[in-house]
Design a protein around this nucleic acid. Structure first.
Length: 676
RNA sequence: GCCUCCUUAGCUCAGUCGGCAGAGCGUUUCCAUGGUAAGGAAAAGGUCGUGGGUUCGAUUCCCACAGGAGGCUCCA
C-alpha cells in the first residue's frame, strides 16, 4: 500500500497509508486524540471522521471539548431528537434543527388534533422524547452521508413539506447545503429496519444536512437535556405556520453539562426581577397592569442617583432641560406620523364627545417625546446661532407592548426615557454625532459598563417615510461617526425607526450578556413635517436636522441592566444603604447613632440596626442586602473613637478611626464618579 | 398577538386521588446583650389569582379573564 503525506496544524507532516481516514489519522497520532476526535477539518472544510485523506491534505482533528466539537455534538443530538419525535408521533413532520449557543433545537409540526389544529407537545412529552433519544443513542446508529439529486430528495421527503421548501431553496436552513441540483443527507440506519420505513427507500431516519456529524449516535452524545417547549413560526414569519420547537442543551461530558446547569442557576440568581423583590427595589403590582413598575424607596434612591448624575453630565455637555405632558390631542401624532406608522405600539385613544366639534376629540398617551420637543423648537423663530440646540427631558412614555413581550424592567409598557433631541444644521451633523457618541460611551462607563459594540440599523423598505437620498445621507453620517469610534459595528438591515436610521450601543455585562442600551437616530423627516426652520447666515430660512438620542435607552431598562450587571451589589456611589452600623450590645447604640448622624451629615447613606439579634445574624442580613460597608462597634470602639470595618467582599479590619473611615468613603465615591 | 407551562401566607415552596389549609424564611411580642454569615419561645398572617360552570360539597375538575415564566414575532 502506498503512503500519502498530510500536514498537521503545527505544520509538521506525517506519512500515512493511502485510504487512511480522518479518524484513522487521529488514532495514529494517539489514543487520547482518537477518543476525543469528533470531526476533522481537511483543507479548511469540516469532514466526518470516515472521510478518506488524500496526499497533501492539511488536516486538523476537532476534539469534543472545542467550540467546533461541541457544535457538532449539538447538531448530531438535534438529529437524534428529530428521529425520536418522528418515532413517537406518527404523522409528525419536521422543519429545521440547528445547533445554537449552549445547545440545539428542532422545529416540528405534530399531526392534527381532534380540534383540527396541529397538535402540541405536553410537558411530560419531553421525558418520553428524552427516553427515546437515549434508546437511539444506545443503538449507536451510524451517521451516513450521501448526496442525492433533488428529484430523489423530493421523493424521500415527500411527506415533509418543510423539507421540500428547503430542497427547493424557498426556505433557508443554515445546516443544509444550498447548492443547486443536489441535496446532502445524513442517514441513521437502525440495527433492525423499521416495519414501515418512513422515508422512501431508507430503513430508518434521514435528514437533509450539510454535516459533518459524530460517527454514530452513541459516540460523544448522551450528555444532554431537553429543556423546554416553545412555539416558533416557520421561517420566522408570524403569518406562517406555528411549529412546536423543542430546545435542549448538550455537552461533551457529564461534568460540562452539570457546569452549564449551574451557570444557568447563577444567572437566575442575578435576575433583576428576583433581586428587585429581594432587595426591595421595585415591583409590578397586578392592580396597575402588565409592564407598569413602581419603584420602592431603596430602588428610588438608586434611580434618583442615576438620574441626578445624568442631569449633571448633560448640563455640562450643553443640554437644556425641558418638560412635556404625558398626553396630547391626536393631531400632534398625525403631524409626526406616529398614528400612521406607530399606532400599533400606542395605547388606544381616550375619546371626548364634548370637545373638538361634532366628531369629538381623541387624546393619546405619548409613545415618544420628539413631537413635543419639535413644538418647543417651533415656539419662536430660531437662528443658526442657537444651533445645535439640545433639548433634554426625562420623558415618560407609554407603549402598548404585545402581552407576550413584556419582561421585567427591560421591556415595559410605561417607561421614562432620558431623551434628548438635538436640532442642528446638516453641516454640524457629523461633528455632533461624533461628539455625541463619545459622550454616550463616557457616561455609560461611569455607570460601570465598559464593553461595547455598535449596531447600525438601516431602512426597512416596507416601513419608512421620506426621500431615499436623505436616508442615504443620514445612514452614511451615522456610519462615519460609528467607524470613528473604533468599536465593532454590526449591520442591522431593516431595523430602523420609520423616520430615520439609528446607531445603537450594545453593552456586555459582567457575565457576558449583551443589552441594547443607547440609541442615536438621525431624522430628516420630522423637522419638515413640523415646519421647523432656522434663519441661516444668508438670512434665508432652512430646515434643521434632528438627532434623537437616549443614553439609558429607558431609565427602567438601564436600572434592570445595572442590577444584573452588579448582581444587586451596587457600587458605593449608587448603593441604597452605603454603611450599616451594628452596635455589639445595646449600650453601644448611642455611639452607633452618633456615627450614623455624622455620616449622614457628610452626605452618606447610613443606618443602624440595634442589638435585638446576635451580631452574626445581623451581619448575615447586611451581607444579604449587599451593603458595601458593615461597621461593628463595641467597647473598644466607643473608648477609642474607632470602628470595626467589614467591607463587602473584603477582610475585616479592626480599630479603624472614624475620621479615617469617613475619608475613605469620600475617596472611594470620588474615584467612582469623579468630582463632577 | 401566538405556543407551552405556572399562580397556595410578605418571600420560597409543600399539600389536598374533590371533604375544616402546611413548612422554612420574614413580621410582631417576650426572653437573651452578644466582637464578625442563622440564640430561644410565642403570636399574628391565606375567601388557595379573579369570575363563571360541574358537584351534596371545588383550593383541587372544566371554561373564560388577569398576572407571571420560557420561546416565537416585535422592540428602548
Amino acid at each position: 500500500m502506498s503512503a500519502i503525506t498530510v500536514t498537521l496544524p503545527d505544520r509538521s507532516t506525517r506519512q500515512v497509508d493511502e485510504g487512511t481516514t480522518v479518524g484513522g489519522l487521529a488514532a495514529e497520532i494517539g489514543r487520547g486524540l482518537a477518543k476525543a476526535a469528533v470531526i476533522g477539518v481537511v483543507n479548511g472544510v469540516e469532514r466526518d471522521l470516515v472521510w478518506p485523506l488524500a496526499d497533501g491534505d492539511e488536516v486538523e482533528i476537532v476534539t469534543a471539548d472545542s467550540d467546533r466539537g461541541l457544535y457538532t455534538i449539538r447538531h448530531s443530538t438535534a438529529h437524534v431528537l428529530a428521529q425520536a419525535v418522528l418515532d413517537l408521533f406518527p404523522g409528525a413532520t419536521f422543519g429545521i434543527g440547528p445547533p445554537i449557543e449552549d445547545g440545539f433545537y428542532y422545529d416540528f409540526q405534530l399531526p392534527l388534533g381532534t380540534d383540527g389544529r396541529p397538535g402540541t407537545f405536553a410537558p411530560d412529552d419531553l421525558t418520553r422524547i428524552e427516553a427515546r433519544m437515549r434508546e437511539i443513542m444506545a443503538e449507536a446508529q451510524p451517521f451516513v452521508r450521501d448526496d442525492i439529486d433533488n428529484d430523489r430528495a423530493r421523493e424521500v421527503f415527500a411527506e415533509h413539506p418543510f423539507k421540500l421548501e428547503i430542497i427547493d431553496g424557498e426556505a433557508d436552513d443554515p445546516t443544509s447545503v444550498s447548492e443547486p441540483g443536489f441535496a446532502r443527507t445524513y442517514e441513521n440506519p437502525p440495527p433492525a429496519p423499521k416495519d414501515q420505513p418512513p422515508f422512501a427507500g431508507y430503513p430508518g431516519f434521514i435528514d437533509l444536512c450539510r454535516g459533518p456529524h459524530v460517527p454514530d449516535t452513541k459516540a460523544h452524545l448522551g450528555h444532554f437535556k431537553l429543556t423546554r417547549i416553545a412555539g416558533a413560526y416557520w421561517r420566522g414569519d408570524e403569518k406562517r405556520a406555528q411549529l412546536q420547537r423543542v430546545y435542549g442543551t448538550a455537552w461533551h461530558s457529564k461534568a460540562a453539562l452539570a457546569e452549564h446547569l449551574e451557570r444557568l442557576e447563577e444567572a437566575a440568581k442575578r435576575d433583576h426581577r428576583r433581586l428587585g423583590a429581594e432587595l426591595d427595589l421595585f415591583s409590578f403590582p397586578d392592580e396597575i397592569g402588565s409592564g407598569l413598575a413602581v419603584f420602592h424607596p431603596k430602588g428610588g434612591i438608586v434611580r434618583r442617583l442615576m438620574e441626578d448624575y445624568s442631569r449633571r453630565r448633560h448640563e455640562a455637555a450643553g443640554y437644556e432641560f425641558v418638560y412635556s405632558p404625558h398626553i396630547t390631542k391626536s393631531d400632534l401624532f398625525e403631524t409626526s406620523g406616529h398614528l400612521s406608522w406607530f399606532a400599533d405600539g400606542m395605547f388606544p385613544p381616550m375619546h371626548f364627545d364634548d370637545e373638538g366639534g361634532p366628531d369629538g376629540q381623541d387624546y393619546y398617551l405619548k409613545p415618544m417625546n420628539c413631537p413635543f420637543h419639535c413644538l418647543i423648537y417651533r415656539s419662536r423663530q430660531r437662528s443658526y446661532r442657537e444651533l445645535p440646540l439640545r433639548l433634554f427631558e426625562f420623558g415618560s412614555v407609554y407603549r402598548y407592548e404585545k402581552s407576550g413581550v413584556v419582561h421585567g424592567l427591560t421591556r415595559v409598557r410605561g417607561m421614562t426615557q432620558d431623551d434628548a433631541h438635538i436640532f442642528c444644521t446638516r453641516e454640524q451633523m457629523g461633528d455632533e454625532l461624533r461628539s455625541l457618541l463619545g459622550f454616550v460611551l463616557d457616561l455609560l462607563r461611569d455607570y460601570g459598563l465598559d464593553d461595547f459594540y455598535l449596531e447600525l440599523s438601516t431602512k426597512d423598505p416596507d416601513k419608512y417615510i421620506g426621500a431615499d437620498e436623505d436616508w442615504e445621507e443620514a445612514t452614511e453620517a451615522l456610519r462615519a461617526a460609528a467607524e470613528d469610534s473604533g468599536l465593532d459595528l454590526v449591520p442591522d438591515p431593516g431595523g430602523a425607526a420609520f423616520y430615520g436610521p439609528k446607531i445603537s450601543v450594545q453593552a456586555r455585562d459582567a457575565i457576558g450578556r449583551t443589552w441594547q442600551m443607547s440609541t442615536i437616530q438621525l431624522d430628516f423627516q420630522e423637522p419638515p413635517r413640523f415646519g421647523l426652520e432656522y434663519v441661516g447666515t444668508d438670512g434665508a430660512r432652512h430646515t434643521p436636522v434632528m438627532i434623537h438620542r437616549a443614553l439609558f435607552g429607558s431609565v427602567e431598562r438601564f436600572f434592570g441592566v445595572l442590577v444584573e450587571h452588579y448582581a444587586g451589589a451596587f457600587p458605593l456611589w449608587l448603593a441604597p444603604v452605603q454603611v450599616r452600623l451594628l452596635p455589639v450590645r445595646d449600650d453601644h447604640l448611642a455611639y452607633a447613632d452618633r456615627l450614623a448622624d455624622r455620616l449622614r451629615a457628610e452626605g452618606f447613606r447610613a443606618d443602624v440596626v440595634d442589638a435585638g439579634e446576635k451580631l452574626g445574624n445581623r451581619i448575615r442580613k447586611a451581607k444579604g442586602e449587599k451593603i458595601p460597608y458593615v461597621l461593628v462597634v463595641g467597647d473598644d470602639d466607643v473608648a477609642a473613637g474607632t470602628v470595626g470595618v467589614n467591607p463587602r467582599g473584603g477582610e475585616v479590619e479592626r480599630d479603624v478611626h472614624a475620621d479615617d473611615f469617613v475619608e475613605r468613603l469620600r475617596v472611594e465615591t470620588t474615584v467612582q464618579i469623579g468630582d463632577r
